[in-house]
Design a protein around this nucleic acid. Structure first.
Lengths: 223, 223, 223, 223
DNA sequence: GATGAATGAGTCTTCATTCAT
DNA sequence: TATGAATGAAGACTCATTCAT
């Protein structure tokens, strides 16, 4: 009669692999995102992605047609679900405009800047010239929609007199920059240079919001 | 004391190959910068750099020990001369603080943002994780010095009562972002997405300056 | 004594999977033949063979130990039954020798040239150096027996005076060539080059036979 | 003073490689021909070709863009020069038609059958379906021109009464077969099966010529 | 028996680097 | 100095084979 020990040892004989078709796709995307963001497209070896996902090189090709397809799938699959959840409610809200701005910046950070989308952004900045389609996709699906939400907040505030009139197009561009750059930085130069120096998001966002609001405060005559 | 004319004549007397050697070096750096910025480190082939510089593959190795050395030489040689010429006078100037801010932003743009340094910045953002030394070098030689100049302007203006008190560390970070991101963007997503949409620097910088000044305007009670 | 009906009923009584097993084998051989002939050994993927046979990749291994084994099984199983049915009666026939020649050529064509054996021939010509055993098998089981039949017809005709004396060994080689080459061609260059140009077998064989007979006609003094 | 032995040892230090741009191309073609003929396209590894040509894997790519290009270059470069030298004089000759036939068959053998073209023929038969362009090229540049020469000899002989009327199209096809098949065989099944059995070309060609002439002999009434 | 997910050895191809000329 | 032919390590991709289900 087999002892428990024996049984255990039998059980411990791990199968060479497991059949997990459903999760593999996501695991590979995860691993690829991590490495592509950190090392860049060319410097990332498919075998490393596979290893990080716990599969072998060949398995990757059961899920993606090749390196480029994996890269593109990663972008579209990761971006699309995240972006649709952002900014939906803000535009239709009746809250005061300054509160909307608060929601916008803090919401952007929590739903975009602090998520995997920040890695995507760094990656796309790095590879835009080699993958212009991807750059356009990102521009159209992430940058432009977010900019539109911010623009509509500004326009509504200006129309209602809550904000003084400003050049909305430029303002949007200027005021998206800090949070966008912070996102990129956190996957790039940030980790290399005394990461403890990085300003914590809360402080960063509050200051940003305050400056934006003071620049928008009515009753001031633009110089 | 050597006159400029004398100096010039000395240079002209040098044998042709010597001057060739100098120019080859610069031509290779130029070509490398262009291609590394556009394609990234890995995707750039040394042979393409050599061809663009008008020499053969082997010749490149007479001037640089290898790909990595060329890459690093490119960074240090291009950054160092540019950065030392920036911000020297501003700190010691007695002009009004708002004028200094104007000089700072427009100066930064003309001496950094609109120069090859903008390409370097994109490149370093892209390759930081693979070349952390380079990232640190850039941080220390470009970001930090420029930030210090801006910080000192702010501090002086606050001290003199020209500006209201602000969190200088965060403000510097926030207000460098637009010009830094614009520099990076111009070598990355910008060229891929309807470049005519890009806001022209003059308008961009004026708006930025205006917002910064309104955020710094005294007589406002920070919320 | 079992009637045909009885035999049939016996077969029908076998459980379905048993008959399936038999037919799977044949279906795989069929699919493999088609693809190996068309694409060659290396360029044929086992998965394509399985798909064409309507099974999955893994199932193939339930019937054949591997690619090479399938390839060899294909050769032996396809050749052996066909070859034994050819030439049996001819050798013992008492018909006139010219009629035997007629039977030989038309019979060879209908039982070999126009069958799957022609594909096998092309395949073996292509892979002979990689599978010398197979080449020898083909030589011994197909070429040599057929040649012997033709040789015996010639020898009998010469002995009886119906044919003039010829170098039988060479003659056999020469007169097998057109039909053998036609068989190979039909799976190789033929399909690539205006297949409508191919001469139809009837006309081809009649002309061949006529020329052979005229070369064998007695009463002519060989030049 | 260095001894001769020393000098010798110094000399024996072979350079890691030699600069021989002119001959490499031909050496690679040679090596490729040998291996592609023997093993087929897929089973031939580029590294083996390179090794046989005495160079490394990478060097091959300095001369050919890839495997397929090497394969095609091999076909066109090897065929074209050989084919243009054959059959030129025969068509315009005033020699008796039977002598022309003799020249044709022996000439074809010496200039085609016994040359590297015979290997090409085997290779093309094997790979025709995968490289139909190549098959067509071979058909048009080798088969068709040679067939035309033979056809013109037959036609002239028939017109002059030296030969009896025959179906020239079929006759050409039939009478090219033995020499074509012998060429293919010599690179395929031949080497696998007791090569000493192969009939020597002289005897083979003489017998072929004799049979052809007897089939063409006038004064015979075609059945 | 049947399936197809998983594996990993094998091959083509690229390109940084070396070195004979 | 300058060249570019030659090298070989490295990586993307394929596919015969295995095996958990």
């Amino acid at each position: 009669m087999p002892t428990p020990t024996h049984q255990q040892s039998v059980r411990q004989r791990q199968p060479r692999w497991e059949r997990r078709k459903e999760s593999r796709h996501a695991e590979l995307i995860d691993a690829a995102l991590e490495l592509f963001v950190a090392r860049g497209y060319d410097a990332t070896r498919l075998e490393d992605i596979a290893a990080r996902a716990g599969v072998s090189k060949g398995t990757l090709y059961l899920y993606f047609a090749g390196k480029e397809e994996l890269f593109k799938a990663l972008v579209s699959e990761t971006i699309v679900p995240l972006i649709h959840s952002f900014g939906e409610g803000i535009a239709r809200s009746r809250a005061p405009s300054d509160e909307l701005l608060h929601r916008f910046f803090f919401g952007w950070w929590s739903k975009v800047g602090a998520t995997r989308l920040s890695g995507i952004a760094k990656m796309i900045v790095a590879e835009a010239r080699n993958f212009p389609d991807m750059a356009r996709f990102f521009q159209e699906e992430v940058i432009t929609p977010a900019s539109r939400v911010l623009a509509s907040i500004l326009e509504r505030g200006i129309a209602s007199g809550e904000f003084r009139p400003v050049d909305v197009e430029v303002a949007v561009n200027l005021w998206m920059s800090p949070i966008a750059l912070k996102a990129i930085w956190s996957h790039s130069i940030g980790p290399c240079c005394a990461p403890e120096l990085a300003i914590e998001p809360e402080r960063f966002l509050n200051a940003h919001l305050e400056f934006v609001l003071s620049a928008l405060a009515p009753g001031k005559i633009p110089s």
